[in-house]
Design a protein around this nucleic acid. Structure first.
Length: 296
DNA sequence: TTTCCTTTGAAGCAC
DNA sequence: GTGCTTCAAAGGAAA
């Protein structure tokens, strides 16, 4: 057994001991003991001290081959074509991320060995979810991928709901359009007709160029419209913030650990490591989209 | 069936 | 303060 395996086994032993002797959540001390700091996954130190692990966790391009329940006996599910090209948003990742993206990737909890799993209670029917909790859908989505489930019923917007209507309990509130988006909505039809283009990406490229060619005076009406939309949005949803659409915030709303939210979204049969079930909600999970899942 | 592509701007967050 | 990331929109293409 190599040192990293020993360390992981030690982590599991600690968690199990905690579970055996307490019905409540793991203490912050336990987390500190496990990770050496309150939020190790998000700190530069942790990424430096355990560069391999950090790199692995932040590499979405290679996660698709890995099951979300690698510790359990059930067969792996694949849900998107494995041949899909690497996540294009890696282009926006840091050079460090890009440099290491070819390395194998595993979320932290998947690196904890052994059959030490507990099932997350399933309290009812769960909507089919095509994505694994750490799978490419989570990494590749332009916005958080939400799927309804019993655990989060009424609060979680799905991609479908996002395009359809408000949920009974909590509407998915979209961001107001910015000036360019208003300009784009106004001009795209004319551009498509003028140039005979139907490809939206191409249209957007042209619109971006034309937007840049506009004078400040020509752009001003669009900024003003955007301000009006923003004021209306604020009046309609005074407490709304874009962060309300994040998974972490939803977990707070549902009073559930984000891992449980994610698990329930992904697969009612899947298992979650006790570490995730027993730890208090403050998140130290390292996710590829660190902004959403680590910062809290 | 689902995501990518492609743009700008607003907002949130980490450092 | 700076830099990074996400998401608003659209619809054809790709997997």
């Amino acid at each position: 057994m190599n040192p990293s395996e020993e360390a992981l086994d030690a982590m599991v032993a600690l968690v199990e001991a905690q579970l055996l002797h307490s019905d409540g959540p793991a203490s912050p001390d336990l987390l500190s003991e496990l990770h050496g700091s309150p939020a190790p996954a998000s700190t530069p130190e942790s990424q430096t001290d355990n560069s391999e692990q950090s790199t692995l966790e932040r590499s979405p391009a290679t996660t698709r081959e890995v099951s979300h329940r690698p510790l359990g006996p059930a067969p792996r599910k694949t849900f998107y074509p494995a041949q899909r090209p690497p996540y294009s948003r890696m282009a926006h990742a840091s050079p460090q991320d890009r440099a290491t993206s070819s390395q194998p990737s595993l979320p932290l909890y998947m690196m904890i060995p052994g059959p030490k799993l507990v099932p997350v209670p399933s309290t009812g029917p769960t909507r089919h979810c095509p994505a694994m909790i750490h799978g490419p859908a989570m990494f590749q989505a332009k916005q958080p991928v939400f799927y309804t489930s019993q655990a989060t019923a009424g609060n979680v917007p799905s991609r479908k709901r996002k395009r359809d209507a408000d949920d009974a309990g909590r509407p998915y509130i979209k961001k107001p359009l910015n000036a360019f988006m208003i300009y784009r909505a106004e001009q795209r039809g004319a551009i498509m007709q003028e140039l005979g283009i139907t490809n939206s990406a191409e249209v957007n490229t042209i619109l971006g160029e034309r937007w840049g060619e506009l004078s400040e005076a020509e752009q001003a009406p669009y900024y003003e419209k955007a301000r009006v939309l923003k004021r209306e949005h604020q009046a309609k949803y005074p407490d709304w913030s874009p962060k309300d659409n994040s998974i972490v915030n939803l977990s707070a709303t549902a009073n559930l650990h984000p891992m449980v939210i994610l698990q329930s979204m992904a697969d009612p049969q899947c298992m979650v490591h006790p570490l995730y079930v027993s730890t208090p909600r403050p998140v130290w999970i390292t996710w590829s989209t660190r902004t959403h899942l680590v910062s809290r």
